[in-house]
Write a protein that binds this DNA or RNA. Structure first.
Length: 954
RNA sequence: GCCGAGUUGGCGGAAUGGUAGACGCGACGGUCUCAAAAACCGUUGUCCGAAAGGGCGUGCGGGUUCGAGUCCCGCACUCGGCACCA
């Protein structure tokens, strides 16, 4: 039992006191609308809008969270705290800061929960959002609460669907390199300015043919083509959602390539702009590289190979037209559309048995090879995760094609090492220059011709640089192509030129990127604003009928199948909602029967445009008023892309969300709906907070907080356990929540600790026992200002001594620089040094502690506000100017000069900062230990960098 | 295989080409206390030395420089992305 005289100081900065302070200030901020950012126009405009009164803007965004049922662990807020520190710092610079947080609330976990419980996914999602809001509010984030939203809000869905319609109602004009309204394409067809790809005139087409022609050009279109079908999930998936192992990113089910009729978005039209505009944004190189890689632009040539016996030709794509003389056979992907027309009636005389797979006729051999390829998962087809050493298989078509540069007849194979969908789905095979072709040639006894001189001792294919060899031919018409001796680059140019002149090919560019598969067979997503009429062609739902809301259904799951059931077909849950699917609508020509699209959008839809909605979250006329969009996102200088000033989030979205959002934003830019060309101007990837987990000898995880470290060993009770490093998660029993930190230390300590652990971009392990260091720091600051026993203010108005002035102003200078560059860890270190100096010097002067409190405010806002108010200020410090260093106090009274002899430090002397070179050299040479080190040797060179360094060479 | 990032004490991490290890955790010693906790003060890369001082030290091997964690060349390892992409 404690007695009164044992009671600890009642005004110590404990977790209880911190909690009281934090809750009090959070309530006050809410009540006063402290973080509301005024808009130029609309419902969030300032009450007394003077022209230009808003000041400079700064728009900060976090990658918004998915409201998971598990709630937050201490890793989640890292980025939110960092952006909050920046926002608070910018406010103290006088900026109008837009910072808010919404919720990315459609998605699979809620749907799975709904399937299991029968509860509508909205119910559970809203409950999860409430819990997250509570956890985040306690952090004291300076968000404008009026601008929060969730992607499932009917108002938000309305504009997601509206954007879909914009994309649906537009086409990509390759000449102008931009999207244009589809009506302008129709006009061009009608006026004869443009003809259909097959040359048919508009006037000759029937109404349905016209619609099909137009529909085929839309940026959002329905298409039957190979897609990733995942029977285990019952849905199709985008390429970006399939792992390298050919499985679904969610659930890890096998994925099969199937021809299915699905919605796609023509993101490939933007390939060049998506690559080129990366130069114009301030993003980490790693993310830029991942996007470049993913889009996969490669320059090369398209070469036409004629097949005289079939009266057909096919194009191949190659990045190495210089090796064309070494093309000794050609390969088509098994799915290539020309395969059937190239298959010979019978095997030519003398066909090697290996080429036929022992089958009687080419048709049968091809059919069985194609069937076998179709039944394989992508992984099986690739023969393993590692590309090396995959066994090459294929079968001869029975036909020969003509190599255009030398007239040689080369056999045409199909083989599954050639992929449909990349390039032209057909290759010229150059075994001398490509390892895969080499392996195939070895297996099938095909000739190998080297066309680049390999280094001595080369075995196998040589894909490198070198002079061209074996590469000359004189055609029947007497024209000569001779590239022997040329280096690769020149040889490429020469061959492409020759191909162009002879109508046999041309230089071209291909991309790895495929169009974005946009439909999902799920319930919990945005319905498509699309209906079909009796001709089965899609029609956009008119704007005034938006949003198209999800119907209530008894069963939220799509039909799922055995994970490896290749023959299964997608069946979305909405297809079973008969009354919703079949509707009577008046689309301008009287009430008619229509059928609704029953797929839903992928959960990337909402995050593809949410940056826009923050700027004008309640606008019911537009997705954002142009004036508001221009103010917050518009370009600020000539050539600037515009976009969010700072976007912080995990690197896991490098090629998913960030690519999709850029694509949508560019479409909206082309169509004139936004003034910015890129959504996010500056991107920072925060690291992950990781954690140790412990496994006992049975391989079972034990609670991490019960493990003790003794003599380098880890023990759970008396049982030894082994340590693993990785994620924080329930199953690993190593979760630490923000709530744990709030109650043990308070939100400010938690914030300071997370920011002090290391650079924002770096992943690091969580260590709860180190948090106390940040608490001690805040306690020392508190103690500088407040008497722990009486609670009285200890601050006086004494003048600062020179040493304190110097420390104070170098700290201000350094902290400002660190804040500018998001180096919060070193900013905190400097604030700790200042605090320790003041503590040691016994200084509690207002002239020192006021700047300290202001500098602390972005990092530990609650305790800073509390101290600021105790210092006698009535108003919040949120817009108080951040301290500015006085250059007069940046120079120290004395400087430590380092004296090196032969590059080694041999002495240190304290000198006046304004000391001259000659005087300093004399002092240095007189220093006893320096004299001893020189040991009478002759001075060959003395480098003096006054006042910090003298370097002596003997 | 290709592309990118990284490798510094027991741990997290600091260092415009100029004192390597700021700041914090931990550990050790001390003050206060009957005692403990908290708080506060001090020590803490390593080896030799009583000390003064000296040797070694930023993944490895070279180089540039009066001087290299930092710049250049080569290599190893770790992490991330892509990958039968022609």
């Amino acid at each position: 039992m404690s007695t009164p005289d044992e009671t600890p100081a009642s005004y110590r900065y404990t977790s209880e006191l911190a909690g009281d302070i934090e809750r009090r200030w959070q309530d006050r901020w809410d009540a006063e609308g402290t973080f509301e950012a005024p808009n130029p126009t609309g419902d969030l405009a300032a009450d007394d809008p003077e022209a230009g009164a808003l000041g400079d803007k700064y728009f900060i965004m976090d990658m918004f969270p998915y409201p998971s049922g598990a709630g937050l662990h201490v890793g989640h807020p890292l980025g939110y705290i960092a952006t909050d520190v920046v926002g608070r710092y910018r406010r103290m610079q006088g900026d109008n800061v837009l910072h808010a947080l919404g919720y990315d609330a459609f998605g699979l976990p809620a749907e799975i929960h709904a399937v299991q419980t029968g509860e509508h996914p909205r119910t559970n999602t809203l409950a999860n959002m409430d819990n997250m809001r509570r956890q985040l509010r306690r952090l004291g984030l300076a968000h404008d609460p009026r601008r929060s939203f969730a992607t499932i809000d009917p108002d938000f869905v309305r504009w997601t669907q509206w954007i879909f319609i914009q994309i649906f109602e537009s086409w990509y004009d390759e000449d102008q390199q931009r999207a244009r309204p589809i009506s302008e394409l129709r006009d061009e067809y009608e006026s004869g300015l443009r003809t259909a790809p097959d040359g048919a005139a508009w006037s000759e087409l029937g109404p349905i043919e016209r619609r099909i022609l137009i529909d085929s050009r839309r940026l959002a279109y329905v298409d039957e083509s190979p897609v990733n079908w995942c029977p285990g999930l019952g849905t199709v998936l985008a390429n970006e959602e399939v792992t390298a192992e050919g499985r679904s990113e969610r659930g890890n089910f096998p994925v099969f390539t199937r021809n299915l009729r699905q919605w796609k978005m023509r993101i490939t039209a933007y390939s060049d702009r998506l690559i080129d505009d990366l130069e114009r944004v301030d993003w980490p190189d790693s993310v830029k590289n991942m996007q470049r890689n993913w889009i996969g632009r490669s320059h090369g040539a398209r070469v036409r190979f004629d097949v005289p016996t079939a009266g057909r030709s096919f194009d191949v794509f190659t990045t190495r037209p210089d090796t064309l003389f070494g093309a000794t056979y050609a390969v088509l992907a098994p799915e290539h559309e020309l395969v059937e027309s190239l298959v010979a009636e019978a095997w030519p005389e003398g066909t090697p048995r290996a080429w036929t797979n022992g089958v009687e006729t080419p048709a049968e051999a091809i059919a069985s090879y194609r069937a076998a390829a179709a039944a394989k998962t992508d992984l099986e087809r690739q023969g393993g995760v590692d590309g090396a050493g995959r066994e090459k298989t294929g079968v001869f078509t029975g036909s020969y094609a003509v190599n255009p540069v030398n007239g040689e007849e080369v056999p045409v194979f199909i083989a599954d090492y050639v992929l449909t969908g990349y390039g032209t789905g057909a290759i010229m095979a150059v075994p001398g220059g490509d390892q895969r072709d080499w392996e195939f040639a070895q297996a099938y006894g095909l000739p190998i011709v080297r066309t680049v001189e390999p280094p001595e001792g080369t075995e196998g294919a040589y894909p490198g640089e070198g002079p061209a060899i074996n590469s000359a031919h004189t055609s029947a018409d007497g024209s000569v192509l001779d590239i022997n001796g040329l280096a690769v680059a020149e040889a490429k140019t020469a061959v492409v030129e020759w191909l162009q002149q002879h109508g046999a090919g041309e230089g071209t560019t291909t991309y790895r990127l495929r169009d974005w598969l946009f439909s999902r067979q799920r319930y919990w997503g945005e319905p498509f604003p699309i209906v079909y009429d009796e001709s089965d062609q899609p029609i956009a739902v008119p704007d005034h009928m938006l949003p198209v809301e999800l119907p209530d259904v008894p069963d939220y799951s799509p039909k799922t199948y055995e994970p490896d059931d290749v023959e299964s077909n997608p069946e979305p849950p909405l297809a079973r909602a008969d009354e919703w699917v079949h509707v009577t609508l008046d689309l301008g020509d009287g009430p008619r029967q229509y059928r609704r699209e029953t797929n839903t959008m992928p959960n990337w839809a909402g995050s593809s445009w949410y940056e826009l909605r923050y700027t004008d979250p309640h606008n019911s006329e537009r997705l954002a008023d142009p004036e508001n969009e221009r103010y917050w996102l518009g370009p600020r200088t000539e050539g600037d892309t515009g976009g969010v000033d700072l976007y912080v989030g995990g690197v896991e979205h490098a090629v998913l969300h960030l690519l999709y959002a850029r694509f949508w934003h560019k479409v909206l830019f082309d169509l004139g709906h936004v003034s910015s060309e890129e959504p996010f101007h500056r991107l920072v990837n925060q690291g992950y907070i990781q954690a140790y987990a412990y496994v006992d000898e049975r391989g079972v995880h034990v609670p991490a907080d019960e493990v003790e470290e003794r003599d380098g060993a880890f023990l759970h009770g008396d049982r030894p356990v082994t340590r693993e490093y990785g994620k924080m998660g329930k199953s690993l029993k190593n979760v630490v929540t923000p709530d744990d930190m709030y109650s043990a230390y308070g939100a400010d300590t938690f914030r300071v600790y997370e920011m002090s652990m290391g650079p924002l971009e770096v992943s690091r392990p969580w260590e709860t026992r180190a948090v106390v260091g940040s608490q001690r720091f805040l306690q020392r600051v508190w103690r500088l200002l407040v008497d722990e026993d009486s609670g009285d203010l200890r601050v006086d108005d004494a003048e600062l001594d020179a040493a304190t002035l110097h420390v104070l102003h170098t700290t201000i200078d350094g902290v400002r620089a660190d804040m500018q560059h998001l180096r919060f860890n070193t900013a905190i270190a400097k604030l700790i040094e200042l605090t320790n100096h003041l503590t040691k010097a016994g200084v509690s002067s207002r002239a020192a502690v006021e700047p300290l409190v202001l500098m602390l405010a972005p990092l530990a806002p609650h305790v800073a506000e509390e101290l600021w108010s105790r210092l006698g200020h009535d108003a919040s410090l949120i817009r108080e100017p951040f301290p500015v260093a006085d250059p007069a106090h940046l120079a120290a009274a004395s400087v430590t000069c380092v004296i090196q002899v032969l590059g080694k430090v041999r002495g240190k002397i304290e000198v006046d900062p304004s000391i001259g070179d000659d005087e300093l050299q004399a002092l240095a040479l007189a220093e006893p230990n320096v004299v001893r080190s020189i040991d009478g040797r002759e001075l060959r060179k003395v480098i003096v960098k006054a006042p910090k360094l003298v370097s002596i060479v003997v």
